[in-house]
């Protein structure tokens, strides 16, 4: 089967994020970049599905500036077979990303598309769902599994998504409010992954070397015939309101007294 995974280049969650003084965006100088953590989980799942269903192929796609090839390379170093880079400088909203992906998918015709549930820069949590609707596909968002990340299944690197014997559908366990839901998704379909689907592998040094030779095809929005003017524009970016500093209390007796008499919450 052919599996397409999407990778977004995002600010490293360990970097300090500060708002620009002109309130147009965040300060990007001095910030580290990396692949969106959810997308690494998507790549890991794609590799496990590929390796238990040979012959299969994993194609990693990123939309972004020239620098995003680094994140495609990181997916290739994890084990993806080839990359596609839709090159565009500047802001692309999630809707435009979804419409670009439609074009890539029409060309590639994958059986399954694996994406992160949320990009941890814009925190939108919409792209996979938009894409599924544009394509008329089914979707299973927030994919997880019943087994924990400490389970023998995870240690054995088993796929959390269960492909049917006829490869026409896949069973997905989803994290929803109040519990977990299982859906059977007809292929081709879209799955967005949550945190507890797997623990992504690290790229080994030999695989990092090998990844340098794997092909990355370069495309652009104009060539794909997609207008990337945003439907949702970011007009201002501000620092969050600061919380007033609190106090340390010496013991439980003082704490309960403060909660009861001052804050009146107990």
């Amino acid at each position: 089967m052919k599996i397409l995974v999407t990778i977004k280049r995002v600010e490293d969650y360990e970097s300090k994020i500060k708002v620009r003084p002109d309130n147009t965006w965040i300060v990007t100088e001095g910030v580290n970049y990396r692949a969106n953590p959810f997308d690494e989980i998507a790549v890991e799942e794609a590799l496990r599905l590929r390796d238990t269903n040979a012959p299969s192929e994993v194609v990693a796609v990123s939309i972004g500036s020239g620098a995003a090839t680094a994140e495609i390379r990181s997916a290739l170093a994890m084990g993806a077979d080839r990359g596609i880079h839709v090159k565009h400088d500047g802001f692309v909203d999630s809707d435009a990303v979804a419409r670009l992906l439609v074009k890539v998918i029409e060309k590639e015709k994958p059986d399954l598309v694996l994406m992160g549930k949320q990009a941890v820069d814009v925190d939108d949590n919409v792209t996979g769902q938009l894409l599924a609707e544009y394509l008329g596909y089914g979707q299973a968002t927030f994919a997880s599994k019943k087994e924990s990340l400490e389970s023998p299944e995870e240690k054995g690197k088993k796929p959390g998504l269960k492909l049917a014997a006829d490869k026409k559908s896949i069973q997905v366990v989803r994290e929803v409010d109040g519990g977990v839901e299982t859906l059977e998704l007809q292929l081709p379909g879209i799955v967005t992954v949550d945190l507890r689907l797997n623990i992504p592998r690290y790229a080994s040094l030999p695989n990092i070397m090998k990844a340098k030779k794997k092909p990355i095809e370069e495309l652009n929005p104009a060539g794909l015939g997609v207008d990337v003017a945003p439907k949702v524009k970011v007009v201002k970016v501000e620092a969050p309101p600061a919380r007033a500093a609190g106090v340390k209390v010496p013991d439980v007796a003082t704490l309960i007294q403060k909660l009861h008499n001052d804050a009146k919450v107990v």
Binding site: E11, Y13, I17, K18, V19, I26, V120, D121, V122, D123, P230, K231, V232, K233, V234, V235, K236, V237, E238, A239, P240
Partner: peptide
């Protein structure tokens, strides 16, 4: 047509404009 929403884990609050 403008709304506030958190980005970057709440490190920033963006005002977004829906143009449709």
């Amino acid at each position: 047509n403008q709304f506030k929403r958190a980005m970057w884990a709440g490190n920033a609050i963006a005002t977004v404009e829906v143009t449709t």
